[in-house]
Nucleic acid binder design. Structure first.
Lengths: 341, 341
DNA sequence: CTGTTAGCGCATTCAG
DNA sequence: CTGAATGCGCTAACAG
């Protein structure tokens, strides 16, 4: 391994000088800089992170914590995509990204502790949010830089988070259904415990109310989309005396299950029933009918979270803030016009 | 930050002793061990990785590089799943895992160089394999520990790789179709450049030949599944005078596209056409019809690769080897019996 | 069984 | 503008 000393020797300067040209210190003459750089290149010098980290007490690395992957939810294409978003900025800023690799909640917590106490990373991105989460509490207590993608359950204005305006998105997409003539619209969402679901549902409900449409409990379904993609949800809905003609579904992946269930039951989408959802993952484009869905800009969600976190690691006093990533509806083929009765 | 010195002082021993109890060195009396451990707990001591890494010249970290994510392929649930597999062993062995975060090929290469030269990681897992890949060549030249998930294009018995027996898998799943009475079976695969595709196709072909069935070129289709999920593939196939009754598709995600295309064109699966594929990602279970597919044990693929790599980082002279992860067919509802004509 | 010493590679005072 | 000295926190001989 070629060290700073080697290039110092080769150049006939002191190690500290080499260190300074690495940092591009302005007090070094342009000439020696060139000379040193040349030697670095020739010798194949590359700085050693561990040494650097030790000296400066910082790592230029961020940790990313995925939800407990006991959860099948991890198979959601949302995750690779957000990782890409994060990666795009870590790459640009020459940070590295460490993934937490626990599977149970317990393990994850242990991992995070290691990351924090062991100085593995300068900050952490939480890709989930739960009520009373040990990890978040821990980070908070330790005053360790972290951001949340989504909406925190507690201390909402003390923790910087990156989210969409899911309420508005829910409202808009529901309005789209209303505008195309639908009057009986149901909502199918994942766990009520999740803010995403709640926000989107609230938006749906607001739209329904404002339009003066029927707002009944029977039309709001919550199901673990892990289990058979909400098959039951569909069955429940179809067994109603007055069936909905439009469905707002809180996640593309879930739509896939619902769609399949619908067609299996002999309903054609969008002919018999229209359907819209959220996320705009790749899937929604390749299935038939392709999905009208709100693109929540997953990549940007990731990128913004990384940016915000890095700022925070650089200046710990950076105030907590909320970053709202814009969304936009992508119109495709899962919705059809419905004439008034 | 509480260091080894602090606990040394608090315990009245030398720093080196503390270091030894951390390493659980057997030459330390059980008594002082207890004493030291107690102090560590009380003071909230946690070892600093950077310092440790610097001293031992190793990082207990592995790098994972994903395929260039210009590729939509990353949205394949295959990736989160394999990451989980890797994570399960890195966690157990107390390693950490760093994701490469480049998006273009160029960027990825730069990242890998940083990882290697900067001593960010002890070894690297490549989650893709391409002909004449700079990254692989680089790792190879530098004699840096790495493993490949899949099959390397070059130096196949010099690089340890973890793969399924895709040939056999292809053969078996095709045989399943044959056994259920299908006589005209087509293959739809991704890029011919990929070994996975090639191997699976070769298996398909072997099965077809052995069964004495028609083996024509028209029945072998290659398409970028990125684009509209192989819609054209389907159209081509359907426009044939003698249409196939069974389809072997090289990836579940692609099946999704094909399935949609088929139903859109008015064909019902499995009634009119049967279909089988590979991977057994979550999707294949939630769509209707659920997919008969070969489970390639993605998680295990990841876990084995991590294990093999870690072994290699510990003992660089570990010989290159090939690890074959078993597969198994999961029978679901995308295949129906076909009576002889 | 334990303490002392000397680095690991780099950044950063402080001099000059 | 540059060099010498010191220390980041930990491990690893070497003594004893």
């Amino acid at each position: 391994m070629v060290t700073i000393k080697d290039v110092a020797k080769a150049t006939g300067v002191a190690p500290s000088t080499v260190s300074r040209v690495i940092a591009n210190n302005p007090r070094i003459s342009i000439m020696t800089k060139e000379k040193v750089r040349k030697a670095m290149k020739e010798l194949g010098y590359h700085p050693n992170v561990s040494a650097r980290n030790l000296a400066v007490k910082s790592t230029k690395a961020i940790g990313v914590v995925l939800p407990s992957s006991a959860d099948k939810a991890l198979q959601n294409p949302f995750f690779p995509e957000i990782l890409r978003g994060i990666g795009s900025v870590t790459h640009d800023m020459e940070y590295s990204m460490t993934l937490s690799s626990g599977i149970t909640e317990e393990e994850i917590f242990a991992e995070v502790q290691r990351m924090v106490y062991g100085s593995y990373v300068d900050g952490i991105i939480l890709l989930y949010s739960r009520l009373n989460d040990r990890v978040m509490n821990f980070l908070h207590d330790k005053n360790f830089p972290y951001v949340i993608v989504g909406k925190p359950y507690e201390d909402i204005d003390e923790v910087t988070h990156i989210d969409n305006d899911n309420f508005t998105a829910g409202k808009e997409i529901t309005n789209h259904l209303i505008e195309t003539g639908h009057e009986r619209i149901a909502f199918i969402g994942g766990s009520k415990e999740l803010f995403v679901t709640m926000d989107r549902e609230a938006g749906y409900q607001a739209a329904v109310k404002e339009a003066g449409l029927k707002d009944c409990e029977e039309y709001k379904i919550h199901t673990e989309f892990l289990k058979s993609g909400g098959r039951e949800a569909v069955e429940n809905l179809l067994s109603l005396k007055v069936r909905p003609t439009g469905l707002v579904i809180s996640d593309d992946l879930m739509s896939l299950g619902v769609l399949s269930g619908l067609e299996e039951a002999g309903f054609s989408v969008p002919h018999d029933i229209s359907l819209v959802s959220f996320n705009n993952v790749y899937l929604s484009e390749i299935i038939r009918p392709s999905l009208t869905t709100v693109d929540i800009h997953i990549h940007e969600l990731g990128a913004e979270s990384a940016k915000a976190l890095i700022e925070k690691t650089i200046d710990k006093s950076e105030p907590a803030k909320r970053i709202t990533v814009p969304h936009e509806i992508v119109f495709r083929n899962s919705v059809s016009k419905r004439e008034a009765f």
